[in-house]
Simulated assay, not measured.
Amino acid sequence: MTSCTTAPPVLAERIAHVLLNQEAVRVQPADPFTWSSGWTAPVYCDNRLLLSTPGARNAVQQGFLAYCAGLPARPDVIAGTATAGIPHATLLADRLGTALAYVRGSAKTHGRRRQVEGRVNSSTETLVVEDLVSTGASALDAVKAVRDRKAPVIGVLAIFSYDFPEAHEAFAEAQCALHALTTFQTVARVARDTGRLSTTEYDDLIRWHSAPDSWSPA
């Protein structure tokens, strides 16, 4: 499967409200952020903030469980990406009663020199949990690490996706499914509809999304 899917609209909007209420996603076109990639962006996502509030954590887990309920079979392993995906993967594995693993950004240079920590092998169908997806590079690095252990990967399950075309292309090329609870477009629309953004600011966000590498504040 190579599709990139999103939760049903009602759930996607509910998660968007959670992210905005917890300030896990902040939108501020007049005072943009600088990403590690060097991009200037009017939006920034930090899903670590969700961990502080039980209700927010529970909303994410309910969305994750709804996705897992639609799978042909329960995953054998939930693998969280380091570091932000690990706590959400831990909560999901606990609720499903499955094994847990995590994927480092790179392999250790000492000891057993592993990138994937946990019992992951050719007989364990693995679901990778990521907190957010932008270009998809880090999530797909984790997928590759799991596949290098000969484990079949069900796909990547994320809380939030910027939904860039580059990510769709990357996941298709890797022949890996991506499912996000909510996306940039949904969060931007909810921010506008709840008065967090004016129509002009909303239009500026959409302009950024269409060309993030060349955007500058209006």
Rank of each mutant, 00 (worst) to 15 (best):
A172E: 14
I86Q: 08
I154L: 14
S138V: 05
A107Q: 10
R192Y: 07
F184S: 10
Y202Q: 13
E201D: 15
A177K: 14
A158R: 05
V120S: 01
W208N: 12
L127D: 10
G111I: 04
A99G: 13
S134N: 10
S122I: 06
L205V: 13
Y102H: 13
A151M: 04
A191Y: 07
E169R: 12
E166T: 12
R192S: 07
A158I: 05
R95E: 15
I159A: 04
A191Q: 09
R114C: 06
V133S: 11
T83V: 12
A93I: 05
I206V: 15
T199C: 03
E117G: 10
A180H: 07
Q185A: 15
A107G: 10
T98D: 02
Y102R: 09
V103H: 05
V153Q: 02
L140N: 10
E173D: 12
D193N: 11
D193I: 04
A188Y: 09
T90M: 14
D131N: 09
G195N: 07
D203A: 13
Q175F: 01
D204V: 00
T83Y: 10
D203P: 01
D148C: 03
L205M: 15
D141F: 00
V153E: 09
H168W: 03
P165M: 08
A107W: 08
H209W: 11
K108H: 10
D193L: 07
S123T: 14
K150M: 00
R196E: 14
T135F: 07
A82G: 02
T186Y: 00
Y102S: 09
R196T: 06
L91A: 14
Q115P: 13
I206W: 06
A142C: 02
D193T: 11
P152F: 00
K150T: 01
E169K: 14
T194G: 07
P87D: 04
D163I: 03
Y202K: 06
S106Y: 01
T81N: 00
S122V: 09
A99Y: 06
A139Y: 02
T109W: 02
S134M: 04
A145N: 01
C176G: 05
A170D: 02
Y162E: 11
I154D: 07
D94C: 04
R192F: 08
T194L: 03
Q185R: 11
R112S: 13
T81L: 12
D203Y: 00
A101Y: 08
E125R: 15
D94K: 11
F164K: 13
E169I: 06
K144S: 11
A142Q: 00
D203M: 03
Y102D: 03
T200L: 09
H168Q: 14
D204A: 14
D193Y: 06
E130H: 02
D213I: 01
W208R: 06
F160D: 12
T124A: 12
